[in-house]
């Protein structure tokens, strides 16, 4: 068995999820492979550090105060939408700037007319979407549609990710960590929606083998 095979079993080994035969195989490999043993030791060290990662206790008498307060607070009223912001939305959200973070800024693709971010398969890269607004706007929906073969770190398996947010006056930065899974790529679309208004921004994601 090669190292890659055993390294894929180190986390399940640490989590005590392997059967007896796999445990014996992993342990035998660790005995004779210093490189895998180092990886295992780092994993175990991290596991122990996370298990010991401290929790700061609540303030004195928190439980008593919280229980008492729970009985005095009425149900929350529904949120009101400030209608005046709807008309102002289209004019107030001005620009989108995007930039590659890890290595270089994306370059324009003259053929497509879109900015392009290049990714290799299994490569992760963070891009920043920057929305400049000249006013604070509440209850803005942000929809990101991903091209095939590309996923967003933390949202595995989703082609569309949605947030409801507030735009602050000034620049608002949305970091997106993209990961290429297959050599497809295509257009990444970010939609800002407020009421009936919508602004659409597009970035071409090129995936290379």
């Amino acid at each position: 068995m090669n190292c890659e095979h055993h390294q894929a079993r180190l986390d399940p080994y640490l989590d005590a999820e392997l059967g007896a035969d796999d445990v014996a195989a992993v342990e035998a490999h660790l005995e004779q492979c210093p490189a895998c043993r180092r990886i295992f030791e780092r994993g175990r060290s991290l596991q122990r550090a996370l298990a010991a990662y401290p929790v700061s206790g609540p303030t004195p008498d928190f439980a008593e105060r919280a229980l008492a307060r729970a009985k005095t607070i009425p149900r929350r009223p529904p949120r009101l939408v400030a209608a005046g912001f709807v008309a102002a939305f289209a004019a107030s959200v001005l620009t989108l700037i995007y930039t590659g973070l890890m290595v270089s800024a994306p370059v324009s693709d003259p053929a497509a007319g879109l900015p392009t971010v290049s990714l290799s398969i299994e490569e992760s890269r963070t891009i920043n979407l920057v929305f400049a607004s000249d006013m604070t706007i509440e209850d803005v929906t942000l929809l990101v549609d991903l091209p095939r073969g590309v996923e967003l770190d933390g949202y595995e398996g989703l082609r569309q990710v949605r947030w409801t947010t507030q735009l602050q006056a000034g620049k608002n930065v949305l970091p997106l960590e993209l990961r290429a899974l297959a050599g497809m790529g295509g257009e990444l679309t970010a939609r800002l929606q407020h009421g009936a208004r919508e602004k659409i921004f597009r970035v071409n994601v090129s995936v290379t083998g």
């Binding site: 700037i97 800024a105 947030w163 947010t165 507030q166 000034g170 608002n172």
Partner: peptide, 26 residues
């Protein structure tokens, strides 16, 4: 978290350049 996007959508001063923004990550 998503309502206020504290973890994802951050506000920055208007006079910062995009390249400076990129330097804040990693």
């Amino acid at each position: 978290q998503r309502k206020h996007a504290r973890s994802r959508l951050r506000s920055v001063p208007l006079d910062e350049e995009a390249d400076q923004l990129s330097a804040t990550e990693h």
